[in-house]
Design a protein around this nucleic acid. Structure first.
Lengths: 278, 278
DNA sequence: GCGAAAAGTCCCCGATCTTGTGCATCACGC
DNA sequence: GCGTGATGCACAAGATCGGGGACTTTTCGC
């Protein structure tokens, strides 16, 4: 029988840890003096302690180890828990590798451009939203004004302040970039349903995961933001799964100078080849 | 200007988190109403928030991000921090992969043997220790009794109780297993130096990292423990760097039945090919 | 347009999660 | 009297989340 200090030296486990393992029931001393409360450990408890250390080394929590150390545990249970752990670690490794790839990509970008990236791409979910939409094929990207007019007018007709339908947005349905004959929709989120009308209709935009960037400044510089986002999608192996959206977070309607316009670009995406990331 | 809730919806960052970022100075609202203390955020703050999210996604802490977001930060500083992070993640990946390998090895072992391993190998440091040693080439493994005798006698001559020189141990110096003519030493840790004597000497055993298993039961079953340990060293790519030791934690001298003998086997080791673990 | 109810916001304290470490205080015994 | 043991509380580390009580703002009914 060893006092806790001796057992600690023997096992290279700190006294505090031994007391903690006692407290959580993982390794009770072989004997406790009822008068002094001194803990006494037996050499025969070393194998159990070593098993605890070995399982801890596999990444199992003390709680899980406690479950595994129950006597007569079916082998299948041990296998199940280790398999779970295996899957968990594999997932963690994959995630870390992806993160490493992201860090490397950013480093390379700084290297290449000599400065931090101008745009930061973030992935985020967008909730489904009920919108009033005006969709049409227009001559060019700049000629959606008439669609905005339709939407704002219709909102007014049904007692909705356009400011309460924030943010106004546009969606682009062409599968590839087009200079002319652009299939686009202007959409305004609705706090409550309204009837359809002349050239406008109510629909629910689906919820999607998007990659987004926020552009600040006049619209003629939006191209850089688009390029940055598309390049990011390429580098990080995402593919586009739906019409992209522009959200006019701060625009001409907000009494703002064009230098302070704020526009968010969203592309619905999903990972491409998740198993071939490296 | 948006109230915190609106900005939260816009950015998909929780209100709580926004308040926290304010508190730690990472993202102060563009305006705070001096009467109500309401926070008001501007759309133009979204790029900064997105940069925060992007850096967070790279695994940087909020504190580090705060350092990186200082205006006019030299590019080199950003690169340095990202490089550090890159190295850190690479290390983490490597460690996780090693752990994954350990879990897989254990699973395979259970698969193969149909039951959990009988021995758990743990790596641990052993401190240097001053010992009284009796070294000789003896006929076979079992014939070290005379060496034990020498040591115990010498201890007694200098007023030391063998019980205070715990645990007695043996070291085996042959570079490979031998059936006969075994070069071994019996050693007893010393609480204080004693003079050398007939066939015994004082020396300091070096501190080493060892792989160890604990065997419980009679000595004729020690072979299984040895095999388990050596197999583990092979599987986990460790090589032996010194004489192995047996520690007699509970043995014939402790009033014990041979079924309750407890012996620890230690092999000094170091990793073999650390870069070729997978 | 007014009052009341509902929703949003404030700040502050504490919990989370894990595996312990550090410190203070008191008891035991060689 | 010093080393060792006991107990118990606090703290750690990081990034929030939860809840409570007090205000403020918005909305809804009339």
């Amino acid at each position: 029988m060893h006092k806790i200090g001796d057992f600690s030296r023997l096992s290279q486990v700190s006294v505090k840890a031994l007391r903690y393992y006692d407290e959580i029931g993982l390794l009770k001393p072989a004997h406790i003096d009822p008068f002094t409360n001194y803990r006494y450990y037996s050499s025969e408890q070393l194998p159990r302690l070593n098993r605890i250390l070995a399982l801890k080394d596999l990444g199992l929590s003390l709680e899980q180890i406690g479950l595994l150390l129950v006597d007569e545990l079916p082998v299948a249970a041990m296998q199940a828990m280790l398999s779970d752990k295996q899957a968990e670690i594999a997932r963690a490794v994959e995630e870390q590798r992806a993160r490493l790839a992201r860090v490397e990509a950013r480093l390379r970008q700084i290297e290449r451009e000599g400065q931090p990236p101008a745009y930061d791409v973030v992935l985020k979910p967008v909730e489904p939203q009920l919108v009033l939409g005006a969709r049409d094929v227009v001559a060019c990207y700049g000629s959606g004004d008439e669609l905005f007019g339709r939407v704002v007018q219709h909102l007014g007709r049904h007692g909705l302040d356009p400011a309460s339908c924030y943010p106004l947005q546009t969606l682009y349905y062409d599968p590839e970039y087009r200079e002319s004959d652009v299939d686009m929709m202007v959409a305004a989120p609705l706090p409550r349903p309204v009837p359809d009308g002349d050239g406008v209709h109510v629909e629910e935009l689906p919820g999607v995961r998007v990659a987004s960037v926020v552009h600040q400044g006049p619209y003629d510089a939006l191209g850089g933001a688009y390029r940055a986002l598309l390049e990011w999608l390429d580098t990080h192996r995402y593919c586009i799964t739906g019409p992209n959206r522009n959200l006019y977070l701060q625009g001409p309607g907000d009494d703002a100078d064009s230098a302070t316009f704020v526009t968010e670009i969203q592309f619905p995406v999903e990972p491409r080849h998740p198993h071939a990331a490296g």
